[in-house]
Every structure is written in C-alpha cells, then in structure tokens.
C-alpha cells in the first residue's frame, strides 16, 4: 500500500529525514517509536504534504501513485489521514459542517454522490458512538476550547468518519486519560480491516497493549534504525534507546 524509499526531506536548509525506508501492506499496523526530535512528526508531515517540508531525494507511493506529487487535499482524497500531534483550533468553523464538507469532497473525488443531510447525520451518530465522542463537541467550533484529550478524540472521530486507507496517528495517546486511551484504542481496533493500514507514532508501549502492532520500528536521526515485532516495544520501554543507537553505529 505505502512504499517509502530512501526518503530525504527537511525544512529550509535543515535535513531531518535522512534516507528513510518503509513498506506498509494492507491490514498491517506499524508502530514507530524513537527519541524526541528523531523526525517522527516530520515523517507524518511529509506524508500528508505540509508545505514547508521539502523532499530532496527518494520516493513515496500509495498503491503505486506518486504521493509526493499531490496536493495535501488529493492525498487525503486518495486515503491518507493524519491524526495530528497538536490539532489546531479553528474558531468559527463548525466541527460538523467541516466534516460534512470534507466527507463530501472526498466522495466527489471518488465519483460518489454527496451524502444527504440525513445520511450524514446517521453516519455521524454511528461514528460518534463508535469512538464515544461527545455530541456536544460535534456542534462546537473546530477544536476551539477543547481540552487536549478532547482534541485527540476529535481526530479519531474524524478518522472514523472519513475511513481512510492509511491512517497516521501522531502521539494520539499523549494527553489521553486511561479511559480515553481504552476507548480510542477500541475505536481503532474496530476500524481495522484487511483493506486499511495504520502507522502509529508513540512514546509509550502501553498503547501497543491495546492496539497490537505487526511491526515496531525505531526511528532515530531521520532513519529507521531497527525493526521488530511488538516485543521490541517492551524492550525499548525497559532499556531506552541508547543501546540501539550504539548498535546502529557499530
């Protein structure tokens, strides 16, 4: 599904991703861990098309299509979804109208009829339930005045509504209380299928107890330096990152 080859990218003159490779197949869940400043969010930014990032080398394809050539909106319409580490507040844009616009633009792109107001409402109810998202928040301005945890849950609500092929969750677990973590994980597990895939960026092994990954990667200094299964996360929790860095050097 997603194929990243020798990706070099940076901001202004600074190189952040330094030859990153990753293959993600349908149905898989990949966890990415790594020290602060390693480039995890930068990878998410490059995949979703954030304007200030410049790709200097390498390629990224989604089902064979060149992702790097597309506008952010077209990437989304092709099925890429990023749950932001820091979701932005947009006062005056209603959460629900925004989602309706988004959903219908994606549907139009795919040649589908836009949903009627009634159909949309039904879908929204269903997904709110799935991720236990407070109905009161749905009608507010987008993320405005939401608590940190509410913002994260809103990201997952949007994910549930838009049903992307590839979801990238950037530290969605940070800032969630234990109940919310369980709810969000349960939601993600229900959304998992053999047709979609997840990249989960996290600092905490705990999340991976709930969402069990097929692969765990360590991203350090702009590269994936180690890949393992879910047990790697346990090992990292115990030993930290230094031993891998040393391994990588030697």
């Amino acid at each position: 599904m997603l194929s990243i080859k020798n990706l070099h990218a940076g901001v202004e003159e600074k190189e952040i991703l330094k030859g990153l490779n990753l293959e993600v197949k349908p149905g898989e869940v990949h966890a990415i861990m790594g020290p602060n400043g390693a480039g995890k969010s930068s990878l998410a930014s490059v995949l979703s098309g954030r304007p200030n990032y410049e790709v200097t080398q390498g390629s990224v394809t989604l089902d064979g299509k060149d992702l790097l050539d597309m506008s952010p909106e077209d990437r989304a319409r092709e099925g890429v979804f990023l749950a932001f580490q820091y979701p932005i507040e947009i006062p005056g844009v209603s959460n629900i109208n925004f989602l309706k616009t988004a959903l219908n633009e994606i549907r139009t792109y795919k040649g589908l009829e836009p949903l009627s107001a009634k159909e949309f409402l039904a879908l929204s109810k269903e997904k709110q339930k799935l991720v236990e998202f407070d109905a009161k928040l749905v009608n507010r301005s987008l993320n405005e005045g939401f608590s940190g945890g509410e913002k994260k849950r809103n990201e997952i609500f949007q994910l549930a509504m838009l049903e992307p092929k590839l979801s990238i969750l950037d530290e969605t677990d940070s800032g969630l209380d234990i109940d919310a973590l369980r709810i969000v994980s349960r939601g993600v597990n229900k959304l998992r299928s053999d047709k979609n895939a997840f990249i989960i960026i996290t600092h905490y092994q705990r999340l991976l107890d709930y969402i069990v990954p097929d692969f765990v990667h360590v991203l350090s200094d702009g590269k994936i330096v180690k890949t393992g299964d879910k047990n790697l996360a346990l090992e990292l929790e115990e030993k930290g990152y230094d031993w891998i860095r040393e391994e990588a050097i030697h």
């Binding site: 098309g49 506008s71 909106e73 932005i88 947009i90 005056g92």
Partner: peptide, 27 residues
C-alpha cells in the same frame, strides 16, 4: 490567513480554495 489551519482543512480532503472560503467565513 493561518497557514496551519489551512493545511489542517486540506489534510481532510478539502480543496485549498474551499478551505480559504471556510476560513474567511469563519473570520
């Protein structure tokens, strides 16, 4: 215009022009 907000809307599949309109209306 808040470029991060614009980007956020785009990452949800909303075209740039539309996203701008939404933000102007919001403003």
């Amino acid at each position: 215009i808040n470029k991060d907000a614009l980007f956020y809307l785009q990452t949800r599949g909303i075209g740039e022009q539309r996203a701008r309109n939404m933000m102007v209306n919001a403003f």
